[in-house]
Amino acid sequence: ERLAYIADHLGFSWTELARELDFTEEQIHQIRIENPNSLQDQSHALLKYWLERDGKHATDTNLVECLTKINRMDIVHLME
């Protein structure tokens, strides 16, 4: 799945992406607590919560915009 692929590449950027996707610091902290050992797991959790929260509004376009804002064009190019 594309989101899994994106999550695998996010690394430390997942928190920046979370902020761009309008997650609160508290929500970010919660994701860290729930997935303490792996940045990859934290990234996967973030994208899963985003899909659950935004439903049909959780679009590739939205994700590309946010990834561009945090200067992760490498991931944007991987999505093309």
Rank of each mutant, 00 (worst) to 15 (best):
D41R: 09
W14T: 02
S38Y: 02
N62S: 13
S13G: 10
A58F: 09
S13W: 05
A4R: 12
E65M: 03
Q40P: 10
E26L: 09
E52C: 05
L10G: 01
Q42H: 00
E20Q: 05
E25K: 15
R32Y: 02
L63C: 10
T15Q: 07
I31M: 04
I28G: 01
I31L: 09
A58P: 13
E52P: 02
T24K: 15
R53A: 09
E26G: 09
E16Q: 15
I70K: 01
L21M: 06
L51R: 08
D22I: 05
L10C: 04
E34M: 04
T59Q: 13
D8W: 02
E20G: 07
V64M: 13
D54L: 10
D8G: 06
E16V: 06
Y49P: 02
H44V: 15
N71D: 09
A45G: 03
D22K: 09
M73L: 14
A58S: 04
E52G: 05
N71E: 05
D74Q: 02
H9S: 02
D54I: 02
Y49S: 12
H9R: 11
I70N: 01
K56R: 10
D41H: 06
L39E: 11
D74F: 00
D54Y: 13
I31D: 00
V64H: 15
V76W: 09
E25C: 04
N35R: 11
E25V: 09
D60H: 03
C66K: 13
R72L: 04
F12S: 14
D54G: 12
F12P: 05
L3Q: 11
R32E: 14
F12E: 04
H29K: 12
I28T: 07
Q42I: 02
A45T: 15
N62I: 05
L67F: 01
A45V: 15
P36G: 10
K56G: 11
E20V: 12
C66V: 14
P36N: 15
A45C: 04
L47C: 05
A58T: 07
Q27T: 15
L67E: 01
L17S: 00
T59P: 12
K48W: 05
S43M: 00
C66R: 12
E25F: 04
D74I: 01
A45R: 12
D74V: 01
E20F: 07
K69D: 07
T24V: 03
D41G: 13
K69E: 09
R32A: 07
S38T: 10
H44W: 05
L3S: 14
E65W: 03
Q40E: 14
T24A: 09
T68W: 03
D54K: 15
A4F: 15
S38H: 05
D41A: 12
Q40D: 15
A4D: 14
L39G: 06
C66S: 12
T24Q: 13
H9I: 11
S43T: 02
K48H: 12
E65D: 15
G11Y: 06
I31H: 01
G11A: 09
T61R: 06
E34W: 11
E52A: 14
T68K: 10
L17N: 00
V64I: 13
D22H: 12
F12M: 14
I75A: 13
H57I: 04
P36L: 08
I31C: 13
G55T: 11
K48V: 08
T59D: 06
L3Y: 05
I75L: 06
E34I: 10
S38F: 05
R32K: 15
T24F: 09
L63N: 00
V76S: 04
L3K: 04
G55C: 06
S43A: 03
T61P: 14
G11I: 03
F23C: 04
T59W: 07
K48G: 14
N71A: 13
E65H: 09
V76T: 04
N37C: 09
E65G: 13
W50E: 02
T15K: 15
N62E: 07
E20D: 13
R53Q: 09
N37Q: 08
E34S: 11
R72N: 03
T24D: 14
V76H: 07
H57Q: 14
I28C: 15
D60E: 10
D60A: 08
E26P: 07
I31A: 01
I75K: 00
R53H: 07
W14P: 00
L51P: 03
S13L: 03
N62R: 12
D8V: 03
Q42R: 06
C66D: 02
K48T: 14
Q42G: 02
E26C: 04
K56W: 06
R32M: 09
T59A: 10
T61M: 02
R53V: 08
L47A: 04
L3D: 02
Q42T: 01
D41W: 04
L67W: 00
D41E: 08
D60S: 06
E34P: 01
H44C: 01
A58C: 11
E20M: 15
E20L: 08
Q27N: 15
K69A: 12
Q40W: 08
I75E: 11
I31E: 01
L17K: 00
A18E: 00
L21I: 03
L10Y: 02
E26V: 05
N37I: 12
H57S: 14
W14C: 01
T61W: 06
N37P: 03
L46Y: 02
S38D: 10
F12K: 05
C66A: 12
H9G: 11
H29M: 05
D54C: 05
L21N: 05
M73S: 15
L10F: 04
D74S: 01
D74R: 01
Q27K: 14
R53K: 11
E16Y: 08
W50F: 07
I33G: 10
L46G: 01
S13P: 03
F23S: 01
F12Y: 04
T61G: 12
H9D: 13
T15D: 04
K48I: 05
H29Q: 11
R53L: 03
V64C: 05
P36Q: 06
L3N: 08
Q40V: 08
E34H: 10
Q40L: 05
E26I: 10
V76C: 11
L21Y: 00
T59S: 14
I6S: 01
T15F: 03
F23I: 14
R53I: 05
R53F: 03
S43R: 01
T61C: 04
E25R: 07
Q30D: 04
Y5M: 01
I75G: 03
N35Y: 08
F23E: 00
K69C: 07
R32H: 14
A45N: 14
R2L: 15
M73T: 07
Q30T: 11
Y49F: 13
T15G: 10
L3F: 15
L3G: 04
T24M: 03
L51F: 14
H29R: 06
S43V: 03
H29L: 12
N37S: 11
K56L: 10
I75P: 02
T59G: 07
T61D: 11
Y5G: 03
G11N: 15
I70G: 01
L3C: 07
H57E: 15
D41T: 12
E20C: 05
R32D: 08
N37H: 11
T24W: 02
L10V: 12
G11R: 08
L47Y: 05
L39A: 14
Q27V: 10
L51S: 06
T24E: 11
R19V: 07
D60Q: 11
A58W: 05
F12D: 02
I28D: 00
G55H: 10
L67V: 05
T61N: 03
D60F: 15
N62Q: 08
W14E: 00
H57N: 12
Q30V: 08
N71G: 12
A45H: 04
A4H: 13
E25H: 08
D41L: 10
K69W: 03
L3T: 11
R19G: 12
R32W: 03
W50A: 12
D54E: 11
I6W: 02
H29T: 12
R19D: 12
I31N: 03
Q42S: 15
R2W: 14
H57C: 09
R19L: 11
T15E: 04
C66T: 08
A4W: 06
L17G: 00
L17R: 00
N71S: 11
W50H: 06
H44D: 00
S38M: 09
R19S: 07
Q30R: 12
A4Y: 08
A4N: 11
W50S: 08
L17Y: 02
D60M: 13
I28M: 09
A4L: 09
I33F: 11
K69M: 08
I31P: 00
T24N: 12
V76K: 02
A4V: 09
G11V: 05
L39K: 07
K69H: 13
T61H: 10
E65N: 03
K56Y: 06
E26D: 09
L51I: 12
L63S: 01
R19H: 14
Q30H: 10
W14V: 03
P36C: 06
D54P: 05
W50C: 09
N62L: 12
V64S: 12
S13Q: 14
S13T: 09
N35I: 07
I70T: 03
E26R: 08
R2V: 13
Q40G: 05
H29A: 12
N62G: 15
D54F: 13
F23V: 05
N71M: 05
E16I: 14
Q42A: 08
T24Y: 14
N71K: 08
A18V: 01
E16G: 09
H29D: 08
D74P: 02
L47D: 00
E52S: 09
L67A: 04
G11K: 09
L39V: 10
H9K: 03
L63I: 15
E25I: 13
I28E: 05
W14G: 00
D22E: 04
N62K: 02
L47V: 10
A7C: 15
T59F: 05
K69G: 09
L46R: 00
Y49T: 15
P36W: 08
L67P: 00
C66L: 06
D41I: 12
R32L: 10
L67C: 05
E26W: 06
I70D: 01
Q40S: 08
L67Y: 01
R19T: 14
